[in-house]
Amino acid sequence: MSLRQHFEEDIANLNKNILKMGLLVEEAIENALIAFKNKDFNLAEKVIAQDKNINQMENDLCDQSVLILAKEQPVASDLRHILAGIKIISQLERMGDHAVHICKRTINIGTDKYIKSTLVNFPKMEELGRHMLVDSLNAFVEGDVDLAREVSARDQEIDDIYDKVEYKLLEKIQKENEKIEQGVELLFISRFLERFGDHVTNICEWVIFSKEGTHENL
């Protein structure tokens, strides 16, 4: 057995599980938007129900990380990697919650026909956020700070769409004085999608902490 083989295996296993948790969140946000677009309330309920798996993973991975800390007593970049992992799983848990919130708002809106612009913009925000999520977790596992910085820069695109959507929704509500309740629900959904991107940016900041030991405000 080579030096640190056990530790390296522990870290590889932890990384794999963080990627798995990321996959659950990725599925949740993707399905949340499918449920939104298609008014598929069964799928929305399913996403809500499955959030418990994401929450459970957060606890399991926290325990797994604590065990590595206790048994291996890592230092320097090894220690920072595990700390960053703990911070990242709590970001993932919050992102899963956003998928749940989107589903709940979708159910609240019900069969009422959507205000048009959201049907184009929300899926776009979701797609951007989802790809950012995948890339940020790859950056974490690979220790790729350049990728982390590049991913976080993409958040601007989500923010720009959010600003546009927010403006349009407010305009619709104020000027046309119609679909006020739906407008408010949609404002919330756009906010959840915008926050999703912010959480990815946070993940990217932890990737940089893990590799460079510095806190960078991306």
Binding site: V75, A76, S77, L79, R80
Partner: peptide, 14 residues
């Protein structure tokens, strides 16, 4: 122990 500057230090303490 948190952020050694030398990779040799890092390798040794790790």
């Amino acid at each position: 122990f948190f952020n050694p500057q030398s990779s040799k230090t890092e390798d040794y303490i790790s």
